[in-house]
């Protein structure tokens, strides 16, 4: 029994010595030790590490050509363990990076969504602003149009009013001018009438003193005495007043225009009108005899206007 123990101890000692001699194996061992103590590879390739460890440990008792092969295989085991650990580490790193990327991508998506919402809100706001701007512009345009229309209308009205006023003024001016013209004419007529009346002269005839009133004292075709003639009848009254005791004969005459009967009536009416005027001026009616002679006693030809004018007359005769 003791011999057996001694043999075993010797075997162990010999193997220890032979291992000590092999520097390459030590190098491999150190490389393996360094590898398995590296923190980042600790969790990975446990199976490959165990295989490498076994292979390396087995080398201590190998010899010769077999040993070279075993060393190569052990080195390959170590390589495989390292690569497997690296792969495990990379796999983990990839997973972690992928997780980080997912997290970042999620945040990115959220940020993009938030930005998209903001963009949409902004776009909506812009649309609203544009709509309001368009509405405001439309309203302003409408207001401007209304104002322009109003101004145009006012201008038109003003123009129309102005034109109306001008027309009215012109009309008034015309009326005034006409009135003035009429007044002038009337005045001229009155003046002419007055002058004619004042220029009346008495003629001595067989029947007595006679004063002849032209037809200018009557309205045309009528027996109405003109107001001017009435107002300027002083000359006639002076003539009559000079002979207060004499009877007065008033004869009306016409031209030959128109019917004889009509002319007779017109001449009578004109004689009567003068008679009434004399009565109105204080002459006694008994002194006056008004006679219509018609067209029967012309003093001039009825073939000319001048002759006809002379024939249309009223004669006031102060009988002898």
């Amino acid at each position: 029994m003791n011999k057996m123990v001694i043999v075993m101890l010797l075997t162990l000692f010999v193997s220890y010595l032979s291992a000590k001699e092999n520097l390459e194996l030590e190098s491999l061992r150190i490389e393996f030790d360094n590898f398995i103590t590296e923190q980042k590879y600790k969790p990975y390739a446990k199976k490959e590490k165990a295989q490498a460890k076994s292979a390396i440990e087995a080398l201590y008792n190998q010899r010769g050509e077999v040993k070279n092969h075993a060393v190569y295989m052990a080195r390959n085991h170590l390589k495989k363990a390292k690569l497997a650990a690296e792969a495990g580490y990379l796999d983990q790193a990839l997973k972690e990076t992928e997780a980080h990327l997912q997290t970042v991508n999620m945040k990115t998506l959220k940020a993009e969504a938030q930005l998209a919402r903001m963009e949409a809100d902004r776009a909506q706001l812009l649309i609203k602003l544009h709509a309001e701007e368009a509405e405001r512009a439309r309203q302003e345009k409408q207001n401007a149009l209304e104002l322009a229309n109003q101004k145009a209308s006012e201008a038109e009205m003003t123009q129309a009013e102005l034109e109306a006023a001008q027309a009215y003024a012109k009309a008034q001016e015309k009326v005034a001018a006409l009135a003035k013209e009429e007044a002038d004419l009337a005045f001229a007529e009155i003046e002419a009438l007055r002058m004619q009346l004042e220029s009346l002269v008495a003629k001595e005839t067989d029947a007595g003193l006679m004063m002849t009133l032209g037809d200018f004292v009557f309205d045309s075709g009528s027996a109405n005495l003109k107001q001017a003639a009435v107002d300027n009848f002083d000359r006639v009254m002076q003539f009559i007043s000079g002979y207060p005791g004499r009877k007065i004969r008033i004869e009306g005459h016409t031209d030959s225009t128109g019917s004889e009967d009509l002319n007779q009536k017109l001449s009578q009416k004109r004689a009567d009108a003068v008679k009434q005027l004399l009565i109105k001026n204080g002459i006694e009616a008994e002194r006056i005899n008004a006679v219509g002679q018609g067209e029967s006693h012309p003093v001039a030809t009825n073939n000319t206007e001048a002759g006809k004018a002379k024939n249309r007359r009223v004669e006031i005769i102060l009988l002898k």
Partner: peptide
């Protein structure tokens, strides 16, 4: 040895691919 070398080569290729993938992933990140 050849079989073992093939395994090593395959593992190395795998690690290279993973390294490349990790680099790309990190760039992406």
């Amino acid at each position: 040895q050849i079989r073992s070398d093939i395994e090593v080569a395959r593992l190395r290729a795998k690690v290279n691919r993973m390294n490349q993938a990790l680099l790309e992933k990190r760039d992406e990140l």
